[in-house]
């Protein structure tokens, strides 16, 4: 009986796999999967993982500088969560890569060499405390929208990681709202600080969801991801959701969106807005953003500096095995 199951041809396996996908079943790490499903997951999840880890860096700048004791503790916990999300996602990616003989070391090396990209927003500068607020409120808000879409991902381990992550993101968004509201309700200086941050971050926030269609920046993997039910919505769907949720809120607290044209078109049932510079986007995600080099260096330096620690404990294992 077991042999019979194994004697399926690749084509039959693929057929059965697609049936499982169509039926809404969850695929697990040890299950048979077509190579391009595995590749699509590795691409998506390893990028997501390193984005969380790189994403900790711009906010980390504000951990010791956070204005009060309470804010210091809260942002420490928030950045810690981001590292924790990186950990969860790395584990998911690592299990997918294991059959290919690759592990965490390889993911990190790909990140350092620039082969593995991380999210555009984490290449940006975060020069003021207002930026810490915008990151927690709107970048995390955008992340909640994209991540929620994949809570029902066909890949079980990814969906489970996202469930843990989304639960914590709710705290992050509130942490962000609390910073933002303190600033918008504060002195003229504070209001100016937060307005400047919003103006600076707006194009990056639009870019966060990726281009509307592949014409904007060349190849895109969205369609394949939809076919395999790894994701269920297009980039534009998500961006529109972001507008629905945040444009009215941003305006209600007296902040000005740096786009004179943005409005909701009743007829089309969608937001009309000024496109960000997609050439700039391409430049940023290929590692030529304002802080790309510095942030990667920070991570690379620290990884190299602590190599002796990993060597020491790895060797200790070898020693004990004898």
């Amino acid at each position: 009986m077991l042999e019979m199951a194994q004697s399926l041809t690749e084509e039959e396996k693929y057929h059965r796999f697609m049936e499982r996908i169509e039926a809404g079943e969850r695929i697990e790490a040890d299950d048979w999967m077509p190579d391009d499903y595995r590749e699509a997951l590795i691409r998506l999840i390893s990028m997501h993982a390193v984005s969380e880890i790189m994403g900790a860096l711009p906010e980390k700048e504000w951990v010791p500088k956070a204005p009060t004791l309470h804010r210091k503790l809260a942002i420490m916990a928030k950045v810690q969560d981001e590292m924790g999300h990186g950990q969860l996602l790395l584990r998911v990616a690592e299990d997918l890569m294991k059959p290919l003989g690759r592990n965490r070391e390889d993911i990190l090396k790909d990140l350092f060499s620039g082969k593995l990209k991380f999210h555009n927003v984490f290449h940006m500068k975060a020069p003021t405390w207002g930026d810490a607020g915008i990151i927690a409120w709107l970048v995390d808000g955008a992340a909640i929208i994209t991540q929620s879409m994949s809570l029902n991902s066909s890949y079980g381990p990814y969906a489970r990681a996202l469930q843990r992550i989304c639960a914590e993101e709710v705290f992050h968004a509130q942490h962000g709202e609390s910073i933002i509201l303190a600033l918008t309700e504060g002195t003229e200086e504070q209001k100016k600080m937060i307005q400047t941050s919003l103006t600076e971050w707006w194009p990056a926030l639009l870019m966060f969801f990726g281009p509307r269609s592949k014409e904007n920046v060349g190849k895109s993997h969205v369609n394949k991801n939809i076919k395999y039910k790894i994701r269920t919505k297009t980039n534009e769907d998500l961006r529109q959701e972001f507008f629905n949720k945040y444009v009215p809120r941003i305006q209600s607290i007296g902040l000005k969106i740096p786009d004179e044209t943005i409005h909701f078109n009743e007829e089309k049932g969608e937001w009309i807005y000024e496109q960000p510079d997609w050439d700039e986007f391409k430049k940023i995600v290929t590692g030529h953003g304002p802080m790309s080099k510095e942030r990667l260096e920070l991570r690379t330096t620290s990884y190299e500096n602590t190599a002796w620690v990993r060597d020491a404990l790895a060797n200790r294992n070898v020693k004990e095995a004898y």
Partner: peptide
């Protein structure tokens, strides 16, 4: 060598 550091 670092691979021995990464046990699951």
């Amino acid at each position: 060598m670092n691979n021995d550091f990464y046990e699951e």
